[in-house]
Nucleic acid binder design. Sequence first.
DNA 1: CGCCAGGGCCTCA
DNA 2: TGAGGCCATGGC
Length: 230
Amino acid sequence: MSKIKRIYALLLNEYGKQGWWPVTKTGNFHPTYDGGPISERQQFEVIAGAILTQNTSWKNVEKAIYKLNKENVLEIDKIKDIKNDKLAELIRSTGYYNQKSIKLKNMAELLDKYPIKKLEKLETKHLRELLLSAKGVGPETADSILLYAFQRSVFVVDAYTKRIFSRLGIIKKNDDYDKVQNFFMDNLEKDEKLFNEYHALIVEHAKRYCTKKSNCIVCPISRECNKQIE
DNA sequence: CGCCAGGGCCTCA
DNA sequence: TGAGGCCATGGC
């Protein structure tokens, strides 16, 4: 078994299935981790959440999603029509709220022009390019949307991925996004379910042990690690 | 009080 | 193409 597959097995054994991406179920206002197929409305919720969580803790995003649900505006048409100031106020807890308000409305415009049902028919490469053409959507956000909203087998790279795997000695900390992504995609089977779970496990591991000031002493995968802390 | 959080854009060299 | 500033709240 390859090293990255072994790491995956260890993390899965340690933390269990994560049930990503958290979405709001009917009759509720808070997103929950259940896994399973999602509705078109929930696809948009994932897209919005991917934007809102940029450089921000998910806890702060949950509060915003709660408010958006309570105001009944977490839909493409409603985000498109809502006043910028009103939207900014609802998502205040996520930080960068003025920029994110614009980003959400840009995305709603895009999805109004290219409905999700039509985007489903696009090849992954073309869908990725379209998402990246939206202001405020960079590679990580685009790939999160591809993987968690459209179930495309794309590996998501974030700051946690770089931190964990550079400490493990598998990548270099200055490797750019595409290089890290290619490393994972060249060394794992192209399986959407695997990519979904692996990224979620990376986030969990980074939060619990591989924090900025790491917790190597109690880390469950320290045997695999060179402990190359900055 | 400072640091960090499921980034991305813009500018400047 | 790489580094640095900027956006900003909430938890600890």
